[in-house]
Amino acid sequence: MSRQLNMDTVQQNFWKEEFLRQKMLRCEWHRKYGSMVKAKQKAKAAARLPLKLPTLYPKTPLSPPPAPKAVPSRAPSPAPGAPIQSEMYPVPPATRALLYEGISHDLQGRYHYLNTRKLDMPEMRYLFPVTTNFTYGWQLGPPVKQELVSCKMCRIESFFRKNGAFALLDPRDLAL
């Protein structure tokens, strides 16, 4: 719509009244609903803020019970009923000694320790499955080697079709 250049006083007064009426409607709406809009904006802003959780400090350890007067002659061993702080079993001393022999660059030290530790089954290293991936191999026992069958017709070398994806099925491609 093009702007009219020849406006007389009647049209000017009409547009002036229209403008003032719109302005008054906006002011009335803001006075009536402005507080609700601000409250909603504050609620949305508060919802976007990250939730702050309270800091939990470690509990102070209980004082140990007084030692009995009659001391046994043998050295004290760790109590079997004591709560375990770790999810792993303690490392055997012979395996731990590998850490301090040589350097990893020469395939000794930490490198040899980690490779030795890796050979243990997860049940020997951990008290319980730590992640859900542990449950797939938990308590399976030692791996069993399968011997290959000497018959070449019985062995399937791949699950891909030998004659292409869109070709008709070949009876040799099916494993029944």
Rank of each mutant, 00 (worst) to 15 (best):
T132P: 07
C151H: 11
Y111A: 15
D106G: 04
D106L: 14
L127F: 11
W138G: 04
L140N: 15
P142Y: 00
Y126S: 06
N115S: 08
G137D: 06
Y136M: 13
P129I: 04
T131Q: 12
L119H: 08
R117T: 11
R117F: 06
T135R: 02
R117A: 03
L114K: 04
D120A: 11
V149F: 03
P122H: 04
H105S: 11
P129W: 05
Q146M: 10
V130H: 00
G141L: 07
T135P: 00
P142S: 06
F128G: 00
Y113V: 11
V149T: 13
R110N: 01
T131N: 07
L148G: 04
Y136G: 07
Y126R: 08
V144C: 02
M124K: 09
N133Q: 08
K145V: 15
P142M: 06
R117I: 10
K152Y: 09
S104R: 02
R125D: 12
P142N: 01
Y111S: 12
Y136T: 13
P142Q: 03
Q146V: 15
E147T: 07
N133W: 07
F134H: 15
H105C: 07
G141M: 05
V144Q: 03
I103K: 10
I103C: 11
N115A: 05
M121E: 07
P129M: 01
K152V: 14
S150W: 03
M121V: 08
G109I: 02
P142A: 05
Y136I: 13
P129H: 02
R117C: 10
L148A: 11
V130P: 00
L140P: 00
L119A: 14
C151S: 12
K152N: 05
R125N: 08
S150F: 00
P143R: 07
G141P: 09
R117G: 00
N133S: 05
T132Q: 09
V130K: 08
G102Y: 01
E123D: 04
M124A: 13
V130I: 15
Q139N: 09
G102S: 06
F134Q: 11
H112P: 02
V130E: 01
Y113G: 05
S104W: 03
P122G: 00
L140D: 07
G102Q: 02
V149W: 03
V144W: 00
H105P: 00
T116I: 12
E123R: 06
Y113N: 07
N115H: 14
R125W: 04
D106E: 11
W138Q: 03
P142E: 05
Y136R: 12
P142F: 02
E147W: 00
Y136K: 09
G102W: 01
T131G: 13
K152G: 08
T135N: 01
F134C: 14
T131W: 03
Y111C: 12
T132K: 12
L119D: 05
S104D: 10
N115R: 14
Y126F: 15
L114D: 04
Y136D: 15
R117Q: 08
P143A: 12
R125Y: 07
S104M: 09
R125H: 02
M124S: 12
T116D: 08
Y136V: 15
C151G: 05
S104K: 10
M124R: 07
E147H: 01
